[in-house]
Write a protein that binds this DNA or RNA. Sequence first.
DNA 1: TTGAAAGCGCTAACAT
DNA 2: ATGTTAGCGCTTTCAA
Lengths: 334, 334
Amino acid sequence: MGATRPRMVDVARVAGVSTATVSRALREPEAVSPRMRERIDAAVERLSYRRNLMAGGLASARSMTIGVVIPSMINAFFSNTLEGMESGLAGSGYQLLIGNSRYGLETEEQLVASLLAWSPAAIVVTGCRHSRGTMRMLLDANIPVIEMWELSDRPIDTVVGFSQRTAGAAAARHLIERGATRLGFIGAMLSSDYRAGDRRAGFMAAAAECGFAPPAEVSVPEQATAVGGAKALSQLMDAHPDVDAVLCSNDVMALGAIFEAHRHGWQVPQRLKLCGCGDIDFAAATEPALTTIRPPRRAIGVKIAEVLLQRFAGVEATETVFDLGFELVVRGST
Amino acid sequence: MGATRPRMVDVARVAGVSTATVSRALREPEAVSPRMRERIDAAVERLSYRRNLMAGGLASARSMTIGVVIPSMINAFFSNTLEGMESGLAGSGYQLLIGNSRYGLETEEQLVASLLAWSPAAIVVTGCRHSRGTMRMLLDANIPVIEMWELSDRPIDTVVGFSQRTAGAAAARHLIERGATRLGFIGAMLSSDYRAGDRRAGFMAAAAECGFAPPAEVSVPEQATAVGGAKALSQLMDAHPDVDAVLCSNDVMALGAIFEAHRHGWQVPQRLKLCGCGDIDFAAATEPALTTIRPPRRAIGVKIAEVLLQRFAGVEATETVFDLGFELVVRGST
DNA sequence: TTGAAAGCGCTAACAT
DNA sequence: ATGTTAGCGCTTTCAA
């Protein structure tokens, strides 16, 4: 039996045409006459032929891949974005090459380098802060580069996200409107998770603008978890018993905080107002339900897919900054 | 300036050697003399050369990629496994090509087909149930094939996981030991999430073995969410007010169930014992803390990386079934 | 609209 | 230990 997979020449032979025509029929069907296309499709079908993407990539110096760098594989923010991107790209034939930077600029640089070795059709990175090396590679890459989950006046190429600062500020104003007198903030990994750091900065700035004392804060060094949230809130309550409204860097931390408040006998929202960020699945199901900042998690991915598909189709980019906004979802916890 | 990226010949010229030697130095440094290696490394450095992986892949008919098919990008089970695999593979130069089957056998088949077009060095799929087409491709692929998150006597090649049935049975026995008199089960998507279906089957079988009436059950058609868990438990409580111990298909559903029980005034664990599955991050932080089945989420990925690296290194496979077990983590909710 | 043919940049025999 | 050389399977001018 056929020990090796069929190649394009095999299809060409069966269909009685040249490999050039087979190649065209497969990549741009309109460029080939209907009769020919039919014969070729039949041959492809008969041999269950699939093209070798490496050979194609080598010949054309570009592959049907899109490199994506995210800072964490287990953070629901980015899973949702990936899911959206994947949905938007479904059927287009593009494959995602996903790399995990672990919130490290160095790691990001290495990842970008190895992703570029695949001659991807585009590259997507998280955030707008990169090492010099990463910047250089991205600028020289000569392919669409999307930065996501933040906003920037001067993106490398295109940015799809929302303003983390504005989101933090919105949370502060909301808590104040609800009658907060003493604000607090709990966070995690603020030095490497720049987006969380930006939300914090926006929160602090808005508090100051409203004439409030600088919010009390506790942040844990590890990745954001419910256990971390509980721990951080516990410390905050001990150190600042007057705090009555807290912004949590993340819904997962907020979840831990809800339980922790409960354990300490602080009623939410009467004694303590709690606001999260993410609007993760469970936020609507907690007791009380969690007020939270809803980022366009999935929409970011969908928009990126749309932008890229347009660019691949040869449409000139007109916009380069896509602010997808956020929503403050008010629920029982405030 | 150099309009095009440097190629291997450029490095060879600068180092004053042949391309074959450069290729060797890059892929198996030990096969080259130290002096040569040094000269080549210097040239690589000087030109900031990176090899073109497509050319390499074409020439060697195998690429530095590993195709992975998971049923969901947003389920923490698989994110953790990916993370583990990624960690285990870090530095080895292998890239993960991740595909999302959305719990569909048809989609899985298409994914496997497109992943194979990259001539991956190995392929990893979730579960042991596949369409005929998928099976054929996997059997013919002639590369390591790993099935994960289940167990099987006769894997296609190698399976890394644990027994979902045994896990469900362990939960039943635990609830019974804790004094349950009337068991219940809430689940989601049981027809397409075979693993959840298996846990349910194990739970039911153990209940019968212990002389219990068939557990009451409610399952929602959508993906498992906290809202779904709350809804399912609510229905279960209404329809079967005598239920006093429930296994939730998933920790996320269990979280919703904890809050729902609270809303209904059913104390956990006094009035209702609740057991989850997953030991997701927040399970330890809930109030009461959640008793749950802890699958080797990350360990599955780490083990797969280990197995594959061995295979790539030419070590013959001795074991083909890796049962990584699970742990019943008993906490306050039971 | 279709075909002929020259690479794409690397790897892997094989030879030295 | 290192070099020579013939492809890998496709895409893409260019010509018909």
